[in-house]
Amino acid sequence: MAEADPSSIPLEQRRPLSPHMQIYKWSPTMAASIAHRATGAALYAGTLLLAAYLLAAAGDAHSFNFASAIFGSFLGQLVLFGYTFALLLHLMGGLRHAIWDAGKGFDPESRDRLAIGSFAAAGVLTVLLWIVSFIIR
């Protein structure tokens, strides 16, 4: 059904709206929730890169070397570093939701610790994984 354009209705007759996120004071759980959705959307685009890499590897040596050169370039490595962090932060967000789904971690201290901890764990794990990848290559 067609939705009425709110701007055509006089201000005093409009239905109340929930407050816009710009007027909220930022909290760790709010940041973690927004980051969870943002990283989910980023991984949506990142999966395109995974499919492209798999197709290149399934092709011939030429396509594989082309993909390897792109992913091995400075910009490619930067994107992969961002993909690693997004993947791990989204994974930590999933663990946080699993804990909440179990009915635990809802008190103010725990939920802030979970939110801040998920950022910290994702950051530390990303750096560790990249150190390992440079050592073993």
């Binding site: 999966t47 395109l48 995974l50 499919a51 798999l54 197709l55 590897a57 399934a58």
Partner: peptide, 12 residues
């Protein structure tokens, strides 16, 4: 994306 990725892994 799913079809392309599965095709690639099976071809590999």
């Amino acid at each position: 994306l799913g079809a392309a990725s599965v095709y690639a892994v099976l071809r590999l």
